[in-house]
Amino acid sequence: MKPVNFDYARPGDVAGALRLISDEDHTVKIMAGSQSLGPMLNMRLVQPDLVVDITGIAELRDVGDGADAIVIGACVTHADFEDLRVPDVTRGALPSVARGIAYRAVRNRGTIGGSITHADPSADWISILAAVGGKVTLQGPAGSRTVAVEDYMLGALEADLQPGEMLVSVTVPKLSASARWGYYKSCRKTGEFAHAIGSFMVDPERGVSRAVVGATESRPYVFKDARKLIGDGKSDLRLDSKLADELVEAEGMADPINRQTHVAALRRAIERAQTA
């Protein structure tokens, strides 16, 4: 379990990184925290000619404050959220979820951009960011584009990343004072990958009600208008379990036991949020 021989570069700015990854003659992998890429390299599941380490790019570690959103650099670590080095605009959602990602050693190095781009269905960021309405911004030869987190993930271990493109930031909307969120994941042991995730966010002031069923076989199921499913947030939330089961089945989850645990995860996410 040792990687193939590869070259290594650590550019100092995004332009430099984009130049390196535009090399079409070689296999290039971007490395951020390396918490998933590292083992994949060791097992030779990826055999790059060049690894571009982007953790030396200062702007990718910055957080920008906007009027109704913050913009988080791709290389901000899970621990940065956990330790509140990233200002919280989500009424505790992101720091709380960050605290439950894998183990502290992973959180010290693992990055939000790397996690989303790795596109593991059972990872935490994709499910909570889809609930709060997060977006990702990509830069590439054709310039910059911004897409919803749930659209960025195409499938298991597959992100909508064009040749020469890289994720540079994640935009998270500022939730209103009356917004509520919830997150529940089922793991067999602490730090293990989740087998079912439920998450939601309602923000009555902004008229938003979103629910997510994650840790599926592929992309999370994102219900962007979840008012019928969980409520609009103006009164007590309640999951319509029967509707949830139908919706999850319609998304393609055939196994009844899987549906049971995933619907239960969503319901527990709601139950846990009642007092929040």
Partner: peptide
Amino acid sequence: ASTFADYLLPGPTE
């Protein structure tokens, strides 16, 4: 199972 991601061992919290 070829890694500890597939082969689960109990940890301190288990």
